Amino acid sequence: MEQHNITWRGIEIAITFTPEKFGMADHVELRSAGKVALPVTETGYRSHFLPVGIVAEHGGAVPFVSAWLEH
């Protein structure tokens, strides 16, 4: 499991990335400080499962989440 903190457009976001969670998928969790809405969640929290390797293809959790938020 990896944990990262980023600031995106002035919003503090905690990222937890677990590769191959439950042996079947990569898992990304986002939590924004103050439960501020983000483009991928209205509540400031998002749990998302992805096919194994997608996060690595983007260069890791921070580049993946940054691209996801910008998309």
Rank of each mutant, 00 (worst) to 15 (best):
M24D: 02
V40M: 08
F64V: 00
W68E: 05
W8T: 04
R46F: 14
F22P: 01
P63R: 00
T41I: 07
G53V: 05
R31W: 12
A61E: 09
M24H: 06
F64N: 02
V62K: 01
H27A: 15
E70T: 10
S47R: 11
L69D: 02
Y45H: 14
V65C: 05
F49H: 14
A25W: 08
E70C: 10
G59L: 09
A61H: 04
P51C: 13
I11Y: 01
E2K: 08
I15E: 03
V40N: 13
V52K: 15
E70N: 13
D26W: 02
M1Q: 14
G60H: 06
E2Q: 06
R46A: 14
A37C: 11
E57W: 07
P51W: 13
F49L: 15
I11L: 02
G34W: 10
H71N: 13
P51H: 11
T16A: 10
E2S: 06
T16F: 10
L69I: 02
V52E: 12
M1L: 08
W8H: 08
W8F: 15
R9M: 14
A25D: 08
L30H: 04
S32A: 14
W68I: 00
V62C: 07
A25M: 10
L38T: 01
K35M: 12
R31T: 10
E12Q: 06
G60Q: 06
V65H: 03
T43N: 08
V28W: 07
I54K: 11
L38N: 02
G60V: 01
V52S: 07
M24T: 10
E70D: 14
A37T: 06
Y45N: 15
T41H: 05
P63L: 00
Y45S: 04
P39C: 08
G44W: 08
N5L: 13
A25I: 09
R31Y: 03
Y45I: 12
V28A: 04
E29N: 08
F22M: 10
F49Q: 11
L30P: 02
S32I: 01
F22D: 13
E42H: 09
V40S: 09
V55I: 12
H58Q: 05
P51G: 02
A56C: 03
G34K: 08
D26S: 05
A33N: 14
R46L: 14
T18C: 03
T16V: 08
W8S: 08
E57Y: 05
Q3M: 07
L38S: 00
H71G: 11
R31C: 04
T18E: 01
Q3A: 06
E57R: 03
F64G: 02
H27Q: 12
F22R: 09
I11E: 09
W68S: 09
P19K: 02
E20P: 00
V40R: 13
V52W: 05
K35Y: 13
F22E: 10
S47K: 02
T43M: 13
V28R: 07
G53D: 04
F17N: 00
W68P: 00
A25C: 05
P39G: 10
V36A: 12
V55T: 00
M24S: 11
I54G: 04
G44D: 04
